[in-house]
Nucleic acid binder design. Sequence first.
DNA 1: TCCTTACGAAAGCAATTGCTTACATTTACC
DNA 2: GGTAAATGTAAGCAATTGCTTTCGTAAGGA
Lengths: 107, 107
Amino acid sequence: MYIDRQLQAIADPRRREILRLVRHTELSSGAIAAHFDVTRPAISQHLQLLQGARLVTVRKDGTRRLYLARPEGLAELRRELEEFWDDRLLRLKHAAEALEGLDGGDR
Amino acid sequence: MYIDRQLQAIADPRRREILRLVRHTELSSGAIAAHFDVTRPAISQHLQLLQGARLVTVRKDGTRRLYLARPEGLAELRRELEEFWDDRLLRLKHAAEALEGLDGGDR
DNA sequence: TCCTTACGAAAGCAATTGCTTACATTTACC
DNA sequence: GGTAAATGTAAGCAATTGCTTTCGTAAGGA
């Protein structure tokens, strides 16, 4: 349900690069910012947006905040896009949701 | 090499919907606009952007212009994203490009 | 030829984006 | 407690975005 925010997040090359950086390694806000030629607050704002899109998680460690990509978020986005590539899946999904609707609810 | 524009294009829900509409059926600008609650020129602008991202093609037919999704463009975007999901591929690509660089050029 | 249909192009506008420079806050360390 | 380090927050600003209304233009039909 976050596909809009997630695609918006991914659409920016800087944010894609950030995601690559924290994909397998936890990095502090400052360490991430060091990779770019913009100021630290700018990166901080990108990180917030990525958080809002459920694409990264944060963990506090002393005075630092360590960021790490959130695999579930990436997987979710990937699934949504798979449906987009092959919209037969999308039709199927709509049909399935219609059926679910009959006994009332998501799970 | 259009990934930035393509992702930007995809990031807008309206443009995603347009792509779905013309995915398998050629539609006129007006017919597409009829599906939305914004004015026709607004859709025209979205269509232009989609064209710039190589995601749709146009064909003139009398006074109409018929739009159709461009599978190669979608495939290209999809490939780029596959690399993004699994960045082992990306590293490989970078390595390959570095090697290509040695004898000087793209192809 | 004149009118109508189907469009894109241009200009203007409010909202959003991505950045900057302050400033505030939290934690570690002496 | 006092200071330094790491970071988010706020406010401001130029550029971009997505839309609107208005106008121009090409093609078809009477």
